[in-house]
């Protein structure tokens, strides 16, 4: 069996396309590279969607936290405090156990039955937790950036007669993003790394369709040799991290394009471990 056959059989195994059974014996390097790479699809799925939805909620939360009105500020404060102050691992468990308690048959709302079974699946439940978690961390970053928007920029906006939504859209928001971007890049990298926790935290891997680390552990358990699958998983994540840094670097350049060269904040290639 050539490597191409293995890739054809197992390349999309993690999303249920191709061979149904996982290999039982004769684990070649090609098997390990293919299946672990196939699992990476889930990491990217969770990371991209949680980041996209989380970005919107984070902006709203940061704005709410910066308000003087306690009815807006307090809920945002508490949300950020709870999700940043507790381990993601516990959040996954808690969410899963809570979702399991929902009635199996679904709710009846005005004659329409709302199904609940899908919420306990990883693709929905874990994504929801990751979305809330990254929203909280990003909101803290955005809040910090919002508070350091230069006073002069705001005064200039006032002088031009910009108010309300237009002032936010044209002045406050772009500046906030520009200031927050290096830290936000870091948060994105952390989020992608955190997606490896999903299938170790209560959410079952349906028909052994798991993420990269799930398959790496599968091989390590089967072959009693951790020295091959884990470095392969590490390799995939390093590539993923470098791709992320490249992508966020492009956005960073665009956000800073109006600034003179010397004042542009270069995105550091070494991600900080500040979270």
């Amino acid at each position: 069996m050539s490597c191409w056959d293995i890739i054809a059989d197992y390349g999309l195994r993690s999303i249920g396309i191709g061979e149904r059974l996982l290999p039982r014996s004769d684990f070649t390097l090609c098997h390990q590279f293919t299946l672990i790479g196939s699992g990476l699809i889930w990491n990217i799925y969770f990371g991209v969607l949680a980041l996209a939805f989380g970005f919107v909620l984070a902006t709203a939360l940061a704005l709410a936290k910066a308000q003087a009105n306690p009815w807006l500020r307090k809920p945002a404060d508490w949300f950020i405090y709870i999700f940043r102050g507790s381990p993601l691992f516990i959040q996954f468990f808690l969410a899963y156990e809570a979702l399991v308690l929902l009635p199996r048959a679904g709710f009846d709302i005005f004659g329409i039955t709302v199904q609940t079974a899908w919420t306990t699946k990883a693709w929905a439940g874990a994504l929801f937790v990751l979305f809330l978690n990254t929203a909280a961390y990003s909101a803290e970053i955005f809040y910090g950036a919002l508070r350091s928007v230069p006073k002069g920029d705001l005064e200039a906006a006032d002088a031009y007669g910009l108010t309300g939504w237009r002032k936010f859209r044209r002045v406050v928001w772009p500046t906030m993003l520009r200031l927050a971007w290096p830290a936000y890049t870091n948060e994105a990298i952390f989020l992608f790394h955190a997606t490896t926790l999903v299938f170790f935290s209560g959410f079952p891997a349906f028909q052994q369709r798991g993420d990269a680390l799930y398959y790496a552990k599968f091989f390590a358990d089967k072959t009693f040799n951790p020295f091959i699958p884990y470095p392969i998983a590490a390799f995939y994540f390093i590539v993923l991290t470098l791709a992320l840094i490249g992508l966020f670097g492009v956005v960073n350049r665009r956000l800073n394009r109006h600034l003179p060269g010397a004042r542009r904040a270069r995105l550091k290639v070494r991600p900080q471990i500040i979270r």
Binding site: H193, P226, A233, A234, I238, I273
Partner: peptide, 20 residues
């Protein structure tokens, strides 16, 4: 070492590797 690779990979790897 820890840049770019999720810490969970190390948590799974180090005990087994050390034991062996």
């Amino acid at each position: 070492m820890v840049r770019g690779v999720p810490d969970i990979v190390f948590f799974l790897f180090v005990p087994v590797a050390l034991d062996q």
